[in-house]
Amino acid sequence: MNIFRLAGDMTHLASVLVLLLKIHTIKSCAGVSLKTQELYVIVFATRYLDIFTSFVSIYNSLMKLIFLGSSFSIVWYMRYHKAVHRTYDREQDTFRHWFLMLPCILLALLIHEKFTFFEVMWTFSLYLEAVAILPQLVLLQRTRNIDNLTGQYIFLLGGYRGFYILNWIYRYFTEPHYVHWITWISGLVQTLLYADFFYYYFLSWKNNKKLQLPA
């Protein structure tokens, strides 16, 4: 565990907490894409299949449980909690899951490190995580009015990806045999998807103005 990996995990955790805070205390999920949240449930469910079979550390297992639990509860709130569900932008959030999932399934079957069940599922989760933010970015583009918490949520998620890239660079130079091309490329693609959002986020922060995306 290095400082970049820890910072990445902590920003990831903070992003989830910010979103839960918005949903649980303000009882609003306005501007939040249910499609993206459902894709994250699938990402964590397929990636952490090993939770009972491979033990790395208490830290790892605990974080896996937190990410599984929080993603499930966010989706539950958005679908079944009456007050929260009422604030959901259903008409704007129209991205099709299969449009993103099918290519990821095919790609995971074709390109993986090892052809075992766990490894293919893990690889699928990496590919799907890379594009899972797309429905959220499309929703932002459509609604254009972004409250502070939603903006912070996406900012923290992007930060998590950025720290993971620093972590990989650090590990590549400090650990022998640490080479994971699939993880790196899908992680890089994922981070690049945030670039546009980051640009406008910093612009609004610098000008001390509310975040607004161009039409």
Partner: peptide
């Protein structure tokens, strides 16, 4: 071995 699953990241 073949079935070794070595992912230590989240």
């Amino acid at each position: 071995d073949e079935d070794y699953f070595d992912h230590d990241e989240l």
